[in-house]
Amino acid sequence: MDLYAALFVVVLSAFLGYEVISRVPVLLHTPLMSGSNFIHGIVLVGAMVALAIAQTPLEQAVGFVAVVMGAMNVTGGYAVTERILAMFDRSKKQGGAP
């Protein structure tokens, strides 16, 4: 990978990450934190690769831990965010009802 290409990607991603959520209401701070927590669950992909290249039992053990943790990050992060946001949906439907 070309170092400068990678640095361009980093710089642009950083600005994008900043811009994309710059006008978020306080109400959504918790779900947004939880949602971005889910997105770094992409670490699971790296964990799968790490375990795939593992050769010694130690590497396999550490790689396995990485996959388990990465998978927890993905499913747990998704389920928590989904649950929080589902609450907002329900309250909107019930809004105005006595």
Partner: peptide
Amino acid sequence: MDGFSIQNYAMIVAGILVGAAGTLL
């Protein structure tokens, strides 16, 4: 950082995205 190390663009972009958004948050 891991994405950089194993040359995985998905990890670089998603990681930095969360890093920047998370810092702002």
